[in-house]
């Protein structure tokens, strides 16, 4: 259960997979990170990250700012290139091969802190762009699927508006729909509620809870501990580029093992 223990073992793969299985996924492995390293210049952002996420598992990553949470999930879809170790997503190892990267990106959806909607396209165009351009879905089919997704995130009536006409919460829900339009197997969330006004956080979290219940594999970087407690199968606590502790929500909140985790929890709870 404790990541430090896992790292002392010579072969980490079996114990990592068992971790994922115990925690709630189907047992099939979706994402595997082995001894992942990442430097920004001289600064080491990630050191020896070992993590396996099972299919349909929801993993929440938390930790103080600068601890490498965002860097970790940005490595999973290669927005950042990792400098050491291996990352395997759904059986495809991320390497310098651009085809592998594109293939992984098609399977992995991402939601950003700053929404990053395309301001010159309407909401529906934002949602249908990738399926039409990358998966070559015909226009009518893409729009029908897009409208279904917008209904799922409860904003079908905004379909023909532009992003700037929507509130922050609505924009973030569009961003979720846009990522889902590619029918991804994994969804990454990079602090999806951090840029939102307080009254809009709930509508975005509701959409994420609904998504988790539908069986999506998710890695969520967030400070929303209520969400983590309710939805996460496992919580990963990071500090200084390392995974300090991994555990189920109950274990994490009631019985943290490491001093660093206790300190973090005492400051945010």
């Amino acid at each position: 259960m404790n990541e430090d223990d896992a790292m002392t073992e010579p072969d980490t793969s079996t114990s990592l997979t068992q971790d994922a299985r115990r925690a709630g996924g189907t047992g099939e492995e979706m994402i595997r990170c082995e001894r992942v390293q990442k430097w920004f210049g001289d600064f080491q952002a990630l050191r020896d990250i070992d993590l396996v996420v099972g299919r349909q598992e929801v993993v929440v990553v938390c930790g103080p700012s600068g601890s490498g949470k965002s860097t970790l999930i940005r490595c999973v879809n290669r927005l950042e290139k990792h400098d050491g170790g291996r990352i395997v997503v759904d059986g495809i190892e991320l390497s310098d091969d651009i085809r592998n990267i594109q293939e992984v990106r098609r399977e992995v959806g991402m939601v950003f802190q700053q929404f990053n909607l395309f301001p010159h396209l309407t909401i529906l165009e934002n949602v249908t762009l990738a399926p039409r351009q990358v998966r070559r879905v015909p226009k009518a089919e893409a729009e029908q699927h897009g409208m279904e997704l917008l209904e799922r995130v409860k904003i079908p009536e905004q379909a023909h508006k532009y992003p700037a006409q929507l509130s922050g919460g609505q924009q973030q829900r569009v961003a979720i729909a846009r990522a889902l339009a590619m029918k991804p197997k994994v969804m990454l969330f990079d602090e999806p509620t951090s840029a939102l006004d307080p009254e809009m956080i709930k509508e975005v979290l509701d959409a994420m809870v609904q998504l988790a219940e539908s069986g999506m594999t998710m890695i969520v970087v967030t400070h929303e501990m209520g969400f983590a407690r309710a939805v996460a199968d496992r919580i990963v606590f990071m500090a200084d580029g390392q995974i300090v502790e991994v555990g189920t929500p109950t274990h994490f909140f009631t019985n943290p093992q490491e001093e660093r985790t206790k300190l973090f929890l005492s400051q945010i709870l």
Partner: peptide, 21 residues
């Protein structure tokens, strides 16, 4: 902003389509 490139990349758009669209 960088976020526009990243959003397009994350959706799997190839570089020249990201630029053009």
């Amino acid at each position: 902003p960088r976020g526009q490139y990243e959003a397009a990349q994350a959706l799997g758009l190839p570089p020249w389509k990201t630029m053009r669209l």
